[in-house]
Design a protein around this nucleic acid. Structure first.
Lengths: 163, 163
DNA sequence: AGAGAATGTTTTAGGCTTCAAGCATTCCGC
DNA sequence: GCGGAATGCTTGAAGCCTAAAACATTCTCT
């Protein structure tokens, strides 16, 4: 799959291809993400990190520790200290000492947090459907599959340092 | 394309599909972007926004105004005031009054900025090739095309407010 | 030429994010 | 049980980012 001719054609700066793909991918997500942030602010006076945190708790009625949250949200744990603090101050989440581990804190939605998020979540789902609505079901399926491959490939490349 | 049966099957919460696609897309970019940020910091002691700004100037030897930069980088203009200030303090870019518009400032790379970025850019291109290397050329092409469609669809949905 | 709209930049206030250092608690192996 | 490693969380310093207000300059239309 990579004879002398191919290698020559590629080398030494033959990675423009991948770079263009990456930049387009980044443009797509940035475009959509910026619009979602704008709408969250305009319609609900909230932010994406707040929304994401509530989403995690919404799915987990028993609550989550800050560490577990930071892993699921793929952000640092120091980040969650402040973020959860703001949400607690607003009365959307509540902290309680972890049942068995005195180092840990469990975070749960309050009743208000739950009902607020239920509304936001439904509207948010509509936004995404709207923003991706120009794609056919076939295209969405193909994209979904290719992104799965991308995720796997990237994870592999990250895990095992190349040279 | 959407008869009664389809509509019923979809409604009222039939947008899980698009939501899953969006979340996967976000996971992919976040995964790669986080790794790129990590390597930029580790190998060059720099950040992605700095890198992006230098990249824009590198392609435009005549320089760009802050406003033009903010449009190309898709960030706010207030943001660029501080970012370009840091890069200027580090001696990588220089400001000069715009030739014909006294409101504007032109930003250019310094010799040092140019040579620093040339190195970073080449290595960065290799990283991307590495991270996306698990995909075949065919897959990359298909993904590239689908993302073009996604970009168009999203832009259309953003431009023209849905209901 | 002059008024008003548009554009280019900065400032301010506030939020998000990371890394690294530090403290408390728990786990593990001996 | 006891000491060291690992884990959970917080804090502090620094950077990134936005929206909105403020100001200067340019453009447009009459």
């Amino acid at each position: 799959m990579s004879d002398a001719e191919t290698v020559l054609a590629d080398a030494p700066a033959g990675h423009k291809d991948e770079l263009r793909l990456w930049l387009r991918m980044l443009t797509c997500t940035t475009l959509i993400e910026t619009e979602i942030r704008r709408r969250l602010r305009a319609d609900f006076d909230t932010t994406l990190p707040r929304f994401d945190l509530l989403a995690q708790l919404f799915r987990t009625p028993d609550g989550l520790t800050l560490g577990e949250l930071s892993r699921r949200m793929m952000v640092s744990n120091g980040n969650l200290t402040a973020l959860s603090g703001r949400l607690e101050a607003e009365g959307l989440v509540e902290r309680s000492p972890h049942a068995t581990d005195r180092r840990a804190t469990t975070l749960r939605l309050t009743a208000r947090g739950r009902s607020d998020f239920a509304v936001q979540s439904a509207v948010h789902e509509g936004w995404i459907a709207d923003l991706l609505g120009g794609l056919s079901a076939t295209e969405r399926a193909a994209l979904f599959r290719l992104l799965a491959r991308t995720k796997t490939a990237a994870r592999a490349a990250i895990e095992d340092p190349p040279p």
